[in-house]
Design a protein around this nucleic acid. Structure first.
Length: 519
DNA sequence: CTGGGGACGGGGCCC
DNA sequence: CGGGCCCCGTCCCCA
């Protein structure tokens, strides 16, 4: 018996050993590929940097100034320029002793390091104050960005996604490489949507709106803003195995278990994973948004460190909001509920073929996506769903059983009287905003809302108070205002009897004073 | 309290 | 007459 047991153990050990060897081999190969890609990236950076510096030195006068490095896009900004000296931190192309864990520095300049480089890591150039202008014009930047978009498709070579970097600071380079090495997370994410969505949800709600419209115009094939070059350098990595975490950089021996707590700064970005079709678009969108969220939040100094995702063991391939999102993630849950609805709601199949949503690009179908779309858009989607849910809880949502409302929403099953109503309503879920303001790039789900909005620009205030000559852009505001004169306070607190003119005031009051919510 | 926007229902018009 | 489409009014939320 013992002999048999020993034999079994020995056989198991042998199998494990063999598999381990194979695994290590594959990891090593992937590491090599990663290093090769990394080198190509650096070579590209150096080449572009040289070219750009040469051009700038020809054109601009030599005067010391401030250079702001955008660490996330690799685009140097500054009013002036460096006149030479030690300002390049990228390893030269010919340097072949690159080590993964080695800070990459290059002195390609003249060696007269007399300039100071101020690295403002957390903000755009605008935040640096009026004295600092962008050295790179928006047009140029957009052009570059467009190029990135064109080359940023799946399978795009690593080098093609890089952007010219006039003076990439060491942290930037280092960061990029860290991200490149973050392929471990890529596989983890591709295998478990839950990770992505959790992170996405966290990022969505810290969205900023500082993207230039031109950049936002560059939507991916799903209408989602693509991750910037440095963020998706491994997007569509042709390497069949991307799960080779770089041990030297991540500190995780790839041969070890993949149980890891993902470094938020190393979160996978823009990674494409083939999932089932019914969820693919949403996944991709959310990933793209996630990528953008990471990027732009980071640019704004947002603490991406908020995001902590634990990946342990086997995570079910199907999303279970309750098990993966705790309290405080209701919006994320709602967002996911839509996907769940897509899969489970019989109306999806019964009334609207799934492709009707899948084929619809929530953003690209809009007229000139140009606003703060990305994270903000999905933030709105998530928030709006909370509202929808709240309305449903108040009984405002119908079940769809009504004879007059026989057109149900494929997401929430709410019934509407006609397909157009459903289409408009479903924009709550899809985020589609077809109506764009020509003055400010605001976008709306309904034409009427756009029309109302445009009064902001025209200054039109058609609703005048007969009591005080105040004018309002909305009839509802006038109606509300009239209560000032009439003293009407129809909303009474059930706890203290205090009366309010608006329901929202009452709710705020009850939240603050009585810690309760009106029902 | 004001102002801006999200969302929905109703109604008119046209085919 | 019904459906599609559009406009408008309205309620509501939030900053």
């Amino acid at each position: 018996m013992e002999v048999l047991a020993n034999a079994a153990v020995a056989e198991i050990c042998k199998l494990v050993h063999d598999d381990y060897a194979v695994f290590r081999l594959e990891i090593t190969q992937s590491q090599k590929e990663n290093r090769a890609l990394r080198r190509k990236l650096l070579e590209m950076k150096v080449a572009r940097e040289r070219a750009e510096r040469t051009m700038r030195e020809r054109v601009l006068a030599s005067r010391p100034s401030i250079k702001i490095l955008d660490r996330y896009r690799g685009i140097a900004r500054g009013e002036g320029h460096l006149t030479g000296g030690h300002r390049s931190f990228v390893k030269p192309a010919g340097h072949n002793t690159l080590r993964d864990d080695q800070p990459i520095t290059v002195d390609e300049g003249s060696g007269t390091s007399t300039q100071h480089i101020i690295v403002i890591e957390s903000a755009d150039a605008e935040a640096a104050g009026p004295g600092v202008k962008q050295e790179t014009s928006e047009g140029e930047e957009d052009t570059l960005y467009s190029r990135d978009l064109q080359t940023g498709a799946v399978g795009a070579p690593l080098v093609a996604t890089d952007k010219p970097t006039t003076a990439p600071a060491q942290p930037k380079t280092r960061r990029s490489i860290t991200e490149v090495s973050g392929t471990l997370n890529a596989v983890l994410k591709s295998e478990t949507d839950t990770d992505t969505l959790t992170v996405t949800q966290r990022l969505l709600h810290t969205g900023s709106d500082q993207m230039s419209d031109q950049r936002r115009m560059g939507l991916g094939r799903l209408g989602c803003p693509p991750a910037p070059a440095s963020e998706y350098v491994l997007y569509g990595n042709p390497s069949p195995r991307t799960d080779s975490g770089d041990a030297s950089e991540t500190g995780n021996d790839p041969s070890c278990s993949y149980i890891s707590e993902i470094d938020p700064s190393n979160m996978p970005l823009g990674l494409e994973a083939q999932t089932d079709l019914s969820r693919q678009d949403w996944n991709q969108c959310s990933r793209s948004v996630h990528s953008e969220g990471c990027l732009y939040e980071a640019r704004e100094g947002m603490a991406v460190d908020e995001v902590t995702v634990k990946v342990e063991g086997d995570i079910p391939p199907t999303w279970n909001a309750d098990s993966h999102l705790g309290d405080g993630h209701t919006q994320g849950r709602d967002f996911l509920d839509y996907r769940e609805s897509l899969e489970t709601n019989p109306n999806v199949a019964a009334h609207y073929p799934l492709h009707t949503l899948k084929d619809r690009d929530p953003v690209s179908t809009s007229m000139g996506p140009s606003d703060s779309h990305g994270s903000v858009l999905f933030d709105q989607v998530l928030n709006s769903n909370d509202r929808t849910r709240a309305q449903a809880q108040r009984g405002e949502a119908t079940s769809g059983n009504s004879k007059d409302k026989r057109f149900p929403c494929m997401f929430c099953n709410k019934g509407f009287s006609c397909p157009q109503k459903v289409e408009i309503h479903q924009r709550v879920h899809t985020g589609e905003k077809p109506y764009s303001c020509g003055q400010c790039h605001m976008r709306f789900t309904q034409a009427g809302n756009l029309k109302r909005h445009q009064r902001v620009h025209t200054g039109e205030k058609p609703y005048s108070c007969t009591q005080c000559h105040m004018c309002f852009t909305q009839a509802g505001h006038l109606k509300m205002h009239l209560k000032v004169h009439t003293g009407e306070r129809p909303f009474t607190c059930t706890h203290c009897g205090k009366r309010f003119s608006e329901r929202s005031y009452l709710r705020i009051h009850q939240q603050k004073k009585h810690s309760t919510l009106i029902t």
